[in-house]
Structures are given as structure tokens and as C-alpha cells.
């Protein structure tokens, strides 16, 4: 395992959304800060920096983690995915993102990237969860705007319970 002195800046290499990237960081730098400020991936948000709100959730090797509770050095050599990776290159939203738009599952959108990343992981592992399961996972995230109803509807659509409605619908 690589050893890094606590006061020494080190170059950290990882794969971000399929691209190999690197930047210098102190060992104490949070992964959330590293992604946002060193690598310029500002889609990941920071809402509490103490592991409660879920805004900062990203995937490391496919598993959802809170990047505010992870040091940048811990992501060394790993495959990191953030919300910027979800839509197609031409901007077409994926089914989960579309479901969020269909069900008005976001207002300010600040909590949204974290929820999308949590459920990208969760739905990949559990393609057919129950509503109770969905609510259980969602309870790891705070949203101040929506009251959650639209988010639950969107997640039900993404899990295949509802016909996708492209017209814009009420939940």
C-alpha cells in the first residue's frame, strides 16, 4: 500500500466517469472537495459534510458512498462515477433521470445528484424493489424542497411500477 506523509501533497490518480484523471491533494482532502475543486466535477454537491444529507453520494467501483466521508486518497486507483456520467453524450437523459423530470421529483436540484447515484447503485443490484425498500433507501437522503412525494413516484417509475409518462404528470 502506498504511504503518504500527512503534510505532503501527493498526486492522486483515479478514473472519473471513464476518463483517467489525476491531481495533487493533501492526504486530508475530502473526496467531495477533490472532485469538485481539483477535478472540476461540480455535479456532486455538499450539503452537510457530516454524512447525514446524502447530497455528496458518488459511486466507487459501482458502490454508492458519501464522498464527504471519504478521503480523496481512498479513491486512488478506483473507478469513480458521478452524476455527470448518467446522461448520454448527446445529453439524452437516462430512464432514471427522465422519471425524475416526469414526476417533478426535483425543485432546486441540490439533493438530486446524490439520490440519483444512490439509486443507480441500488436499482442495479435490486431491479425490482418494493415501495418500502425504495423508501428505506431514500431515507438516507434529505430533500428540503419536494416533500419526497415526487421522488418516490419517480423511483417507482424507474423500478418499472409505473408507465413512464412523458407528458408531465402529477404523482
Amino acid at each position: 500500500m502506498r504511504r503518504i506523509d500527512k503534510d505532503q501533497r501527493a498526486r492522486i490518480r483515479l478514473t472519473l466517469n471513464g476518463r483517467a484523471l489525476s491531481a495533487e491533494a493533501e492526504p486530508r482532502m475530502l473526496l467531495s472537495d477533490f472532485l469538485r475543486h481539483s477535478l472540476g466535477a461540480t455535479g456532486t454537491h455538499v450539503g452537510c459534510e457530516h454524512g447525514v444529507c446524502g447530497c455528496c453520494t458518488v459511486l466507487i467501483d459501482g458502490t454508492a458512498v458519501r464522498s464527504c466521508l471519504t478521503l480523496a486518497v481512498q479513491a486512488e486507483g478506483r473507478d469513480v462515477r458521478t452524476v455527470e456520467s448518467l446522461a448520454a453524450a448527446d445529453g439524452t437523459l437516462n430512464p432514471l433521470q427522465r422519471a425524475f423530470q416526469n414526476h417533478h421529483a426535483l425543485q432546486c436540484g441540490f439533493c438530486t445528484p446524490g439520490i440519483l447515484m444512490s439509486f443507480t447503485d441500488y436499482l442495479a443490484r435490486n431491479p425490482r424493489p418494493s415501495e418500502a425498500d425504495i423508501r428505506d433507501v431514500l431515507s438516507g437522503h434529505l430533500c428540503r424542497c419536494t416533500g419526497y412525494a415526487g421522488i418516490v413516484s419517480a423511483l417507482l417509475e424507474a423500478a418499472g411500477y409505473r408507465q413512464s409518462s412523458e407528458s408531465g404528470s402529477k404523482s
Binding site: 469538485r36 466535477a41 461540480t42 455535479g43 456532486t44 454537491h45 458521478t82 452524476v83 455527470e84 448518467l86 446522461a87 445529453g91 437523459l93 433521470q97 425524475f100 423530470q101 416526469n102 417533478h104 426535483l106 432546486c108 436540484g109 441540490f110 438530486t112 445528484p113 440519483l116 407528458s167 408531465g168 404528470s169 402529477k170
Partner: peptide, 22 residues
Amino acid sequence: GTPVRRKEDPALLSGRGRYADD
């Protein structure tokens, strides 16, 4: 009077929002 879907959403859903710290 109709439930037009939001123009804001595609950017916010793709991590392309432009918040102050971004």
C-alpha cells in the same frame, strides 16, 4: 394552466447546474 415539464430539469439532473460554488 397545464403541467408543462420543467425546462430547468435536464441540466440539474445531469450535474450541469450552475450554483454559486460551481
